[in-house]
Simulated assay, not measured.
Amino acid sequence: MDVQIQSFAVTNLRRRPLVVETGGFVAGFTPDTDHPYLNYATPLPGAEPTEQDVAALIGAFRERGLLPRLEFAPQAAPAVAPALRAAGFGTEAVHEYLVCTPHTLILPQAADSPRVQIPTTDEDFAALDAALAEAFGGVFAPSAEGAARLRRTQRSGGAVRFVRDPEGGIVGGASCSPAAEGTAELSGVGTRPAYRGRGIAAAVTAALTEAMFAQGAGSVWLEYSGEGSRRVYERAGYRPQGTRLYLSLPPAQQP
C-alpha cells in the first residue's frame, strides 16, 4: 500500500498550478499562498537522491521564498529520508494513515444522522471554507482562494460535502481529492467546536468515501490528528495501513 499511496502523492502534486520536477522529486506549488501545507514536494517511489539532487530541490523552494518541505511514505523510497537528513532536514511529524475499501465501508445507520449536502453555490463554498477555518483553529484563514480551491476539487473529479445547522449555516464538512493510482485522499474533516459530538464528522466521512467509490476509486485514505478522530474514521471502516513522514529544512540550516 505504501507504493500506491506514494504514487498517488506524486500524481496529486502534479495537479498543482505550478510543478517542478528535479532529481527524483516532484514539488507542487500553489502561487496564491505561501502556506507550507500547500507548497511541498514528494519523491518518486524508489528514488535514490544524490546530494546534488537535494540541493536542487532546496533551490526550487528558496527561489520562491518558501520553506523546503516534503511529505511522503518513507517505506516507498527508503533512501530519501537519510539523504534529506544529511542535508539538515528535520522531522515535523510522523502520521499514521488509514485506508477504507468498498468492503470495509460502514455507513451511518441512525435515523437522526446529520444530513450531508453537496455545495453548489459560491456562498456554500465560502461558508464551508469559513467553517473549516474555525474548525482548525485558524491554521487556515477563510479566504476567496480557499473557497476556490474547494470548488476546483469538486469540479476536477473529487468531492466536497458539508452539514448545515437548523438556521442554514454550515457547521462542518470535508473534501476528497480526485482519484489517482486507484485511490483518493480524504482530508480537512472539520466541525465547528460548538457542534462537535453530534456525528457530523462521521456522516461527512462516510458520504465522501461512498461518493468516491461510486466514482470508481478502489480505496480512500486519510491521516488523523488524534485518537478521537481515529475512532470516528475506524467506525466508518478505515483501517491502519502505514505511515507518512513530514520533513522540512529549518531556516538556520538552509544554505
Results as ranks from 00 to 15, higher is better:
G168F: 13
S177V: 10
C176S: 04
E51N: 12
T183P: 02
P68D: 13
R62W: 07
A131C: 13
Y37F: 11
G173T: 09
T205G: 10
P102G: 14
R164L: 05
E210G: 06
P193C: 14
R15C: 06
G90E: 15
F72V: 13
E96Y: 02
F125T: 05
G28A: 06
A76S: 07
G226P: 01
P43I: 03
A144E: 15
L132K: 05
V10K: 12
G197Q: 08
D124L: 06
A179N: 04
S7T: 09
R155E: 14
Y40R: 00
G46S: 09
A159W: 01
L107Y: 11
A86Y: 12
Y233W: 06
S143M: 07
A203D: 10
T42H: 05
A147R: 10
L66A: 12
V19T: 09
V20G: 02
L208R: 03
G28E: 01
A56V: 13
D122Q: 14
S113L: 00
R231Y: 03
T153E: 01
G28T: 05
D122L: 08
Q241W: 01
E234P: 03
T101N: 09
T91W: 12
G28P: 04
A9T: 11
Y224E: 00
Y224N: 00
R198Q: 15
E96K: 06
T101F: 09
I170L: 01
G158V: 06
